[in-house]
Design a binder for these strands. Structure first.
Length: 344
DNA sequence: GATCCACAGGAATCCTCGGGGT
DNA sequence: ACCCCGAGGATTCCTGTGGATC
């Protein structure tokens, strides 16, 4: 019954393991970071209050994964512990973030955007004291109204785990009182993974996700090399390579297949970001990537002819600063000498 | 060095949308 | 059916900045 063809077409044994959001049962190379974060959160297990922690570092360095992993671990020690993950890019307004946080404790069922008074959401969160509540605020620098952090900070049984690429992005536009509260928080730095570290991370995914001999160390090193320290890219390349190999009924993931999917995998990850852009942000991004480098004046001119209903220059500047925050574009020079370039 | 000018970004205000109350 | 309200996007107005020009 199980012919050779069937076996070959089943190279991938568990596709979930190949997804970027998969949280492994055991983490590699981040034991210091994990224990630092667990130490910070430990008071919760003793009925106390844990201080805010901030995980920062480049994308694909394992921040989100470690935060989720550590909280899962913590849950094994605390019988009653609520937790919630919020991506502040997707839920960037005060309302949406609060709503998501209430969802995490099943208190959001009857909330409607208009009818619910302004502070009702926060009040509900404040009133909740059933169990310690740990919340991960990912991409916290994208939060529009940072004063929400102050409000959350003052809720005694709520513990924040903040995640951002750079600490400056978090603290830059905080007011004095928030700064003095959050500055002393526990900061845990995440560096890029080394090539060897990426290989062992991939080895785990190989073990759990594909047939044992589907890929060799040499090929994993090739993937790691292309990923340049970014685990998300490494896993993306691996996933695409496994998929292509399986589609072509190959028993192994070869170097050729890997080379073929590298750019596709990288643009897939970028695509995930650009998918979140509005029509106007997208138009601006396209112009900047097409030209390679462009002055503000030329950019606005091209933008106006590219879209049907161009927004004002002021609005375009808002969009551009968003694109910069998203690491899609970069700027150089000041005032008249300014130019916009795509990020590499 | 004075002046000009393109530009950035803060603040106030306007506009629109969607849902609830009467 | 109508009005009202709040949120968030968009616009307008404005000030500050730094390169360019003479």
């Amino acid at each position: 019954m199980c012919s050779v063809v069937v076996i070959e077409s089943c190279m991938i044994t568990d596709a979930r393991v190949l997804q970027p959001e998969f949280v492994p049962g055991d983490v590699k190379h981040r034991t210091n970071e994990v224990s630092h974060l667990s130490d910070t959160l430990r008071p919760i297990t003793e009925g106390g209050h844990a201080e805010t922690s901030l995980l920062y570092g480049p994308s694909g360095a394992g921040k989100t994964c470690i935060a989720r992993y550590t909280i899962e671990e913590l849950r094994e020690h605390v019988v009653a512990l609520d937790h919630q993950y919020v991506n502040c890019w997707e839920d960037h307004t005060r309302f949406k973030t609060l709503h998501r946080l209430l969802e995490g404790i099943n208190k959001a069922f009857d909330i409607h955007r208009q009818s619910t008074p302004k502070d009702e959401l926060l009040a509900r969160l404040r009133d909740y004291d059933d169990a310690p509540y740990v919340v991960i605020l990912d991409e916290v620098d994208q939060l529009e109204d940072k004063s929400l952090l102050y409000d959350l900070y003052r809720i005694s049984n709520l513990t924040m785990v903040l995640i951002a690429n750079r600490t400056e992005d978090v603290f830059a536009d905080l007011d004095e009182r928030l700064n003095s509260r959050l500055q002393p928080c526990t900061r845990i730095k995440f560096g890029r993974y080394s090539l060897d570290q990426l290989v062992t991370i991939l080895e785990d995914r190989v073990r759990w996700g594909v047939e044992p001999d589907a890929i060799g160390t040499e090929q994993l090193e090739l993937i790691a090399d292309h990923a340049a320290g970014d685990a998300r890219i490494a896993i993306g390349i691996f996933r695409n390579a496994a998929r292509v190999a399986q589609q072509n009924s190959h028993t192994q993931i070869t170097a050729d297949v890997i080379e073929d999917v590298v750019s596709e995998a990288k643009s897939e990850i970028r695509q995930k970001t650009t998918d979140k852009l509005t029509e106007h942000q997208q138009a601006l991004y396209d112009i900047i990537t097409d030209t390679g480098e462009i002055s503000p004046g030329d950019l606005y001119e091209q933008y106006c002819s590219a879209v049907d209903d161009p927004k004002t220059q002021r609005m375009v500047r808002n969009h551009l600063s968003k694109l910069e925050q998203y690491n899609l574009i970069s700027t150089s020079g000041a005032t008249k000498a300014r130019t916009y370039q795509p990020c590499t």
